[in-house]
Design a protein around this nucleic acid. Sequence first.
DNA 1: CTGTTAGCGCTTTCAA
DNA 2: TTGAAAGCGCTAACAG
Lengths: 310, 310
Amino acid sequence: MRRNGISTTRIAEICGVSQGTVDRALNNRKGISSKTKEKILAVAKEYGYRPNIHARCIAGGKSMLIGVVVFDLNNQYFSDIVTSIQRHSSLKNYATVIMFTDKERRKEIECINRLYHMSVDGMVICPCGQGEEYENYLLSLGIPIVTIGNRLNRIPYIGIDNTLSMQETVEYVLDRGYQRLIYVKPDLQEKNASAQIERLDSFYQTCKKRNTEYAVTDILHAEDNIRPQKRNALICPTDLYAMRLMHLAKKYHAGIIGFDNVRLIEELSLPLDSVAYDIDTAAKRIVGYIVEGISVFTPVRHQLVKRGSV
Amino acid sequence: MRRNGISTTRIAEICGVSQGTVDRALNNRKGISSKTKEKILAVAKEYGYRPNIHARCIAGGKSMLIGVVVFDLNNQYFSDIVTSIQRHSSLKNYATVIMFTDKERRKEIECINRLYHMSVDGMVICPCGQGEEYENYLLSLGIPIVTIGNRLNRIPYIGIDNTLSMQETVEYVLDRGYQRLIYVKPDLQEKNASAQIERLDSFYQTCKKRNTEYAVTDILHAEDNIRPQKRNALICPTDLYAMRLMHLAKKYHAGIIGFDNVRLIEELSLPLDSVAYDIDTAAKRIVGYIVEGISVFTPVRHQLVKRGSV
DNA sequence: CTGTTAGCGCTTTCAA
DNA sequence: TTGAAAGCGCTAACAG
């Protein structure tokens, strides 16, 4: 192979010790005198030693690789979380390998397979697959896996509480005096869209509880559902929809609110309220779980960011 | 190591041949009868053999890894190109490892170093570094590197012709009858920003050639530079700026045009003209160069996408 | 055409 | 506390 830097073998030669001793020094294993350890560490530093992850991996160690499987980077929510995961893994000396499923279950399996065969130490997946068999498959891989976005039954999920955040959103909107809530629903198709389902369910329930007039529609028919004589509010479970419908809100003096609080809102100085999600915390937990096995699966905090659109 | 699937050793046992022969069959090397080859291939297929990239890498083969080093994923231009590169590498059975520099030279070096020590087979870099020493460093790595976005002197660049595309843009705008062109320039700081410099230079030159009134300003002072009595046009060398300034264009009936034609424009149905760049072709060439050594460094075609904002 | 052998850099056991 | 040796899965060189 291309020789990238110095090896343990070479360090051993230089220090006049065995490779095993070098290994002990470099990996904080016990059974080595602090004198020889220091010496080895010094030499390693001098020569800029970096472990060869491939060799390490093949010999039974970790690959220092985290697989990230998402739909795509179209939705800024994904690019935000991917960025954050990359940052946090970097801090732990992990590299991230990213793959896209385009919301196709077949591709998703292919991605996971490929990552598995790369011996990644763990994966973060926004699953489009679901079901008993699919979960068994994931579980059978025997590596830490966390899901984001959509939820599975037996796999850890890290993200916000969709039910609670939507409930609070609806209540907030109602408290601002809106009379008719229009929920702009994405296609749910047959894929795993648990996040969207949870949000929609929560919307229904809260509306019923508050005895509110509401409508559920898709983005193409949002305008048809506006009743100009009332105070309408558009509830968009994802910011992209909200951004696409801001012109309607303006036209009809309707309220509008999005979800995810993607960076773009700030960047374009859009006056759009959105439910923010502490992505950095999520990413930190994700990496912490995969790298160090730290389990914190309580929901990540959410918060309504107000910019005057409701 | 965790045993992911079957190995060549095992296939050799099953087929009753040597490991060397298995290697010949699996890697299309010569010196093997088609009979034994077929048999081996059949067994490999049956057991779902996948080469262990780590072992292969350590033994002198390829790592099947491509490193991608960009500023971040804030600018949708990056998420678009990263996505496209990932797709094309996937087709060649390569995986992509992504790292972010945040436009900091120190981080950039760190990313490149880490990727190098991962033995990636090549890298795609949008450099913020520049200069003799930096280029020497890149060249010294001895692996294929291509730059995107910003240009370096001695490293292949794949992208559009910034000079020509800006020239055509200016000419187009002028031909539409605009009298005063306002160029909204990003911070150039001390980093490599060759793409931006080329665009700006080309803007200057074309304006002079056409003897046009123009101004160059930053995004904060764009409005101050508009002369309501004239027909103004805002030239934005990146879509994000254009999107941020569309409200000005509307307010003053000015023309506005962006660069990169990011997907978001379509997604939000923004009436914004932009200079499109065939990212898919670029990504294909990038991967082709790294994986197969195919060198096509002629500029990628650009095209003005008209949506009525000029 | 095929087998044998050595070696990549690292981890892990077993002896000393 | 240290060394020696084996082995991970693969490639490459040489011999038959």
